[in-house]
Each structure stands twice: as structure tokens, then as C-alpha cells.
């Protein structure tokens, strides 16, 4: 389960070495914006070595490579694919062809290394107006795409507007990406909340993302991870209700009822689907009925 994804600069060994214990479900080892052009090679070596030698405990490992309009992205993949990260995040993905370019090169490397085809997934970072408009095509570009990811900072620059805490300026992009991802059958992740000193604001921002349908949210500060995990975990109240729904359905079936109601409301298929999602998430987090 990916509720939180924590960005870690790829050239900071003292931060990376604790990446696995900071509570995030996934770490994003960054070779792009966090790393100066003169440090790209050393960051690549560090990230490759740390994945191979240390791992990140139970965290999923994502590597953000440099964008395909730079001279770095193929070298990034040459170094990283052999150590089998779970996902590669190509930034500034604007169209299907951007995805297919990266997909083809990874396929080439997988064949060369004798790796199973599709063993490394993609989570394209959409952070331009064109990318937002092409979100569904990007999300469904190839089977390697497992999720899409909204980058709010670059997007607002491209939209010629100011990034705010309230996030009104990225509302359309958020909704568009959620719809595109769900239509394509992949997951979708929200942009980080960038005020690392606002311990309350992160709750509000994460709750907004969850309410729109995002699967999870990224963080640039470890201090935001706890809030994101809390917001994107099912509450005990939700879990209790989900079990009640499933129990009511079971009893209804036993009694041969066509329509079942709970707490005075009809239980329809979407309610059952949501209840099943909640129970699945709770089980993955180890929250059983005894925790209710």
C-alpha cells in the first residue's frame, strides 16, 4: 500500500541511510531537481549502491530520473535498472511518446540484463499543462505504467500562476489526473505540500487530496509522512462500517433479500465496493476487527 512517498535527495548519504525508517510507504530517490548537474554522476553511483547494498526495509523504492530532454536520463537508467527499483519516475512527462521512449529504453536494458520484461514499472510525473491534458493517454500508454503523479510546482509555473497553500490553482489538474488514472485503471498520487514548517497545513492538504480520490501523497519532508499516513489510512470508524456493510450483505443473501439496508440506507454496489476497498486497505495495514 502506497499512502506516502518521501522524496530523498540522491546525493545526501546521511539522509538516504535513514530513508527506510521514516515511516513512508515508498521512498523516491531523486536524481533530478535535488541534484546539481555537476553532481549527477556521484548521485547516480550513490543511489545505485544504496539500493543494492542497503535496501529500504519495507519501503517501495522509486527513482526519479532526469527528463528525456536532458543528456542524463539514459545514464540514469543504465545505472539504476540493474538494481531493480520498483518504479522509475520520469519527470515532465507530457505525452504518450515521452512514456514510450522511456519504456523502450528500459525494455532494451531488461533484455540486455536478462531481466523479465516489465519487471520495473513506471510512474510518470505530470507537471505541465500539456501533460495534464494528455493525462489519460499517459496513464494508459503501456502496461509498464502503474500510476501517475502530479507535480504542482512546475505545473503552476507552466500555468503562469502562483502556487498557494490552498491549491485552488491546481484543482482542475488534480481532478483531471484522478479521473484519468481511474479510467486507465492505475493509481494516482498527489504533489507534495511544500511548507515543511506547517504541521497543520499538511493535514488539510492531504485530506483534500484524499477527498478527490488520490491513492496517496508525496512529501519532501519526513515530518509530513505521519500526517499523510494518517489521512490515507482508513479510520477505525470506516473499518467498522465496512465490516457492518459486508455482514449486512451476508445476512441479506442468507435471507434471500434482493435489497439490503443498513442504518436506514440502502446498500448498493458502490457502497459494497468501497467497503471492500476499506477492508482490503485495513488488512494490508494490519488493522483487524480487534482494533475497532
Amino acid at each position: 500500500m502506497r499512502r506516502s512517498m518521501l522524496f530523498l535527495p540522491g546525493n545526501t548519504p546521511n539522509i538516504i541511510q535513514n530513508g527506510g525508517i521514516l515511516g513512508a510507504d515508498a521512498v523516491i530517490l531523486d536524481l533530478e531537481d535535488a541534484v546539481a548537474p555537476t553532481e549527477k554522476d556521484s548521485a547516480r553511483i550513490l543511489v545505485r549502491s544504496v539500493i543494492r547494498a542497503m535496501g529500504f526495509d519495507r519501503c517501495e523504492v522509486i527513482v526519479r530520473i532526469n527528463s528525456i530532454d536532458t543528456p542524463f536520463w539514459q545514464k540514469d537508467l543504465d545505472a539504476i535498472i540493474p538494481v531493480r527499483p520498483h518504479l522509475i519516475m520520469p519527470p515532465k512527462t507530457a505525452c504518450v511518446q515521452d512514456v514510450l521512449t522511456v519504456d523502450a529504453y528500459i525494455t532494451h536494458l531488461e533484455e540486455k540484463l536478462g531481466m523479465e520484461h516489465g519487471s520495473v514499472g513506471l510512474i510518470p510525473l505530470i507537471e505541465t499543462a500539456l501533460g495534464v491534458e494528455n493525462a489519460f493517454q499517459i496513464a494508459s500508454a503501456c502496461p509498464r505504467v502503474k500510476a501517475i503523479f502530479l507535480g504542482g510546482e512546475d505545473l503552476t509555473a507552466d500555468l503562469h500562476c502562483k502556487r498557494t497553500k490552498e491549491g485552488e490553482e491546481i484543482s482542475y489538474a488534480r481532478c483531471r489526473l484522478v479521473c484519468a488514472a481511474r479510467a486507465a485503471g492505475v493509481e494516482v498520487y498527489d504533489t507534495p505540500f511544500t511548507d515543511v514548517n506547517d504541521d497543520e497545513g499538511i493535514y488539510t492538504d492531504a485530506a483534500k487530496a484524499k477527498s478527490l480520490g488520490f491513492t496517496g501523497k508525496s512529501a519532501i519532508s519526513p515530518r509530513h509522512v505521519k500526517a499523510i499516513n494518517e489521512v490515507f489510512s482508513p479510520s477505525l470508524k470506516d473499518i467498522e462500517y465496512a465490516y457492518e456493510v459486508m455482514e449486512a450483505i451476508r445476512i441479506g443473501k442468507e435471507q434471500g433479500k434482493g435489497a439490503v439496508s443498513l442504518r436506514g440506507k440502502m446498500i448498493d454496489a458502490p457502497i459494497v465496493a468501497r467497503a471492500m476497498q476499506t477492508i482490503e486497505a485495513a488488512e494490508e495495514l494490519g488493522l483487524g476487527r480487534e482494533d475497532i
Partner: peptide, 8 residues
Amino acid sequence: TRDPVGLI
């Protein structure tokens, strides 16, 4: 401390 490791 605001260091996340220290807080853990």
C-alpha cells in the same frame, strides 16, 4: 529537535 531520526 526537528530531526526526524531524533524524533523517532
